[in-house]
Design a protein around this nucleic acid. Structure first.
Lengths: 339, 339
DNA sequence: CTCTTCAATGATATCGTTATCAATCACAAG
DNA sequence: CTTGTGATTGATAACGATATCATTGAAGAG
């Protein structure tokens, strides 16, 4: 790797002038500027980011800590976040928390040791995030994505989960459903809890009692989602409709339905979450709450860039709207079960 | 961030002894060792990786450049590669090439500027990779994954693509098919070219002439895959079987089939690639060539760790076997078309 | 008691970059 | 001819960690 010292030597100037020429500060004669830029180009000089980082106290890199990189939701966010940051000369460093609080803490620590300039994190827990609180205290730019942490004064980009959940369940109720089950991930995860709250609210608004056995909780895996769906669908008093609150849950529901020989929507109506492949592949296509995933990533990028440029104002909370896309997976409940 | 200087001060020793105590070299008195470790723990000292990297000439980080992070194939590799490296104290830095040679070059350059200790790359092009050749020349550990580059003396982990393609097409031929179309990604990508070669070989071995219109080439996107599949399936002389050579192609084929109202396997038999969600979701499930994805990632991790530990021997080429998983998407061609 | 030996330690150079300070030079004003 | 001004430049000090070299002191050998 060629250093600035070698460039200076080749140009016949001191490294100080070479630095001035390359970085455009101080004053440099036209002649020196030309010779330095020429030498730099010829030798293929690339500034050593590590040395620069040590000197400047920060890298031009942002740490991104998604819940699970194998989840297409986060993969897509990574893509758009990365594109946005790259346009401003920042690099994205990605390391997944695998939805485990201890891993999240460790990953954040490692990234801090690498002196990243800021963080975009999908927090694993709704509360109790001392490592994130520490970031805020130390003035390190932090943007929470998809989920928030109670009491943490940081920027965030989320979708209107409660409203989306409410709207989804309302849609089912309007089609005459009253026995509506819900499939959720761990309620410790803020977004899950909010979607659940929307479900509860919609039931309440129509005087429907919440049936505890209708709550299917699956871990952050495809298998857990399937099992939860399977359990709910084999209940003695089977629900006539299902609200799946994320893409894994939606897939699990569709699989369970198929394996149990239940027809959608004839036997069970479904509203899913996230507009991913499978939902448009099955017949009929699944009515889903679609999150503006690309915007989530881009907005997070914009927020962190603002902070990196020195913005010191109050935390911004960008709340994006999820949209109900009506397709063919919801109709009136089978006559025998109708209220 | 607390520095080693502060730890030394707190322990009442010079930073030299503090460094010795913390890193375990030179000789340190029991007393000094105890006081330093105590101070470090109390102050929460974490070594600054950036400073360490500058001094040591390398970070304990590995750059991973997948073709496309939104492709589940690479996401899964990232997961397993990351796990393997992490176990040895390395961090994974991920930046996607989006299957674009120019981007690949840029990404590799950026990662080099960040002084990563090694690279794992899924090369976009089979030849003409000067930036990768440069790595090899500079002695930077490099492992090619999924694909190889002609004439590049670097470690690699691949699957037996040609054999897998051969086996897949043979399976179709054995069921009586002779009009077999293939869906491939850009033939510039080594793995695609090899799978195509396997297809060719199997046809040759049974004296079947290769029909040029039966070759559907789609870009590295879901849309391109769908279009290629659609084109092939609407041909005047429609093929009775389809070999889809990656997961996007397989999905495209299934979608096109569905949209065209064709039944699988009654109208068209299919052998897909990669054992992902959709293939087991449809009815019947799709017969696929399943790649050992987890092993690909782990093996790449092992290879790069060997180099980081100083191995200087000849390049290792690990070739893993893909396995044909027979399910329900292949049967004899419809009678009217049989030879 | 003197000389050697070695453990223990502090001072210091280095990695490559940035940015400040001090020095030099030309040129114009007096 | 002297002095001042400002542009241009080189020398140099950081950033934090590591590793070498030189120094100290104590213990053991003669």
């Amino acid at each position: 790797m060629v250093t600035i010292r070698e460039v200076a030597e080749a140009a016949g100037v001191s490294q100080a002038t070479a630095a001035r020429a390359l970085n455009g500060y101080g004053s440099v004669s036209a002649r020196a500027l030309e010779r330095v830029t020429e030498s730099a180009a010829r030798l293929g000089y690339k500034t050593n980011m590590i040395a620069q980082a040590l000197r400047l106290g920060q890298t031009r890199a942002i740490g991104f800590v998604p819940g699970d990189i194998e989840n297409p939701f986060f993969a897509k966010i990574a893509r758009h976040l990365g594109d946005t940051l790259e346009a401003s000369g920042y690099t994205l460093l990605l390391s997944s928390s695998d939805e485990r609080p201890d891993r999240e803490r460790k990953v954040v620590e490692t990234l801090r040791q690498h002196m990243v300039s800021g963080f975009v994190v999908a927090p694993t827990a709704q509360d109790d995030a001392p490592h994130l609180a520490q970031l805020v205290e130390d003035g390190v730019p932090l943007v929470l994505i998809d989920r928030r942490v109670e009491g943490l004064r940081a920027d965030s980009v989320t979708v209107n989960n409660e409203g989306a959940g409410f709207q989804a369940v309302l849609h089912l109720i309007e089609h005459g459903h009253r026995d509506i089950a819900i499939l959720v991930d761990d309620l410790q995860i803020a977004s899950s809890a909010e979607r659940f709250a929307g479900y509860q609210k919609a039931l309440d608004a129509h005087g429907i009692r919440l049936e505890p056995t209708y709550i299917g909780v699956g871990g952050a895996s495809r298998e857990g989602a399937y099992e939860a769906a399977h359990r709910v669908l084999t209940l003695g008093h089977r629900p006539t409709a299902l609200f799946a609150t994320d893409n894994f849950m939606t897939e699990g529901a569709l699989r369970a339905l198929r394996d149990l020989g239940l027809r959608m929507p004839a036997d069970v109506s479904i509203v899913g979450f996230d507009d991913f492949d499978l939902t448009t592949f099955v017949d009929p296509a699944v009515t889903v709450v679609a999150q503006p995933i690309a915007e989530l990533g881009q907005e997070a990028g914009r927020l962190i860039l603002r902070r990196l440029e020195g913005a010191e104002d109050e935390p911004h909370n960008v709340n994006l709207l999820a949209e109900l896309i009506i397709r063919g997976s919801v109709e009136a409940p089978p006559a025998s079960d109708a209220a």
